[in-house]
Amino acid sequence: MRREDDERFQDYFGRSVRALSDYLGIGFQIAGSFAFFVLIGYWADEKLGTSPLLLLAGVAVGMTGMVLVLMKVVRNANRKKR
């Protein structure tokens, strides 16, 4: 009986760690892509003197990317449930 409990715990723990790593990866991908486009917009504004136009464009592109990534994740999660 004790061995079954240990195996069940290991199974649950393993699934939890896999799910956590998937969601952490998605979070880092979203944050990284958003920060990348915002920083590129800021840098371009500094070089071209167009403040804040390119920064705002970077924010818009970053947010669009975030929405696309989230839609992809939700779509994949819905497929796995079926």
Rank of each mutant, 00 (worst) to 15 (best):
K72C: 14
S21T: 12
F9Y: 15
G14C: 08
R75G: 02
Q29C: 03
R82Y: 07
R2N: 13
D22R: 08
M1S: 02
D11F: 14
I26L: 00
R18Q: 13
F13C: 01
R79F: 03
R18E: 05
G14D: 15
L24N: 06
E46D: 15
Y42I: 12
I26N: 03
R8E: 12
A57C: 15
R82P: 02
D11L: 13
R15Y: 10
A57H: 04
A60V: 10
M71C: 11
S21G: 05
L24W: 09
L54F: 13
M63H: 07
D6G: 05
I26H: 01
E7P: 06
G58V: 12
R3G: 10
A57D: 10
S16H: 14
G41F: 03
D22T: 00
E4L: 04
S33T: 07
E4Q: 03
G25F: 01
L39C: 08
W43I: 11
L55I: 14
G58K: 04
F37C: 05
K80I: 01
D11G: 03
R15G: 00
R8M: 10
F9I: 02
E7F: 04
I26M: 06
R79N: 09
V17K: 00
E46S: 09
V61D: 03
R79C: 05
I40W: 02
G65A: 11
M63Y: 08
G32F: 04
Y12G: 13
I30F: 02
L70Q: 12
A57Y: 15
I40S: 04
F36V: 01
R79S: 12
S16K: 03
D6V: 10
Y12K: 01
R3I: 11
F37S: 01
G49S: 07
I30Y: 05
E46W: 14
F36W: 07
V69M: 06
D5R: 13
V73P: 01
G65I: 06
F28K: 08
M71G: 04
L53A: 09
V69L: 04
K72Y: 12
L68E: 06
Q10S: 09
G41R: 11
G62A: 03
K47N: 11
F9H: 08
I26W: 04
V59C: 06
R2H: 10
F36L: 11
L24Y: 09
L20F: 10
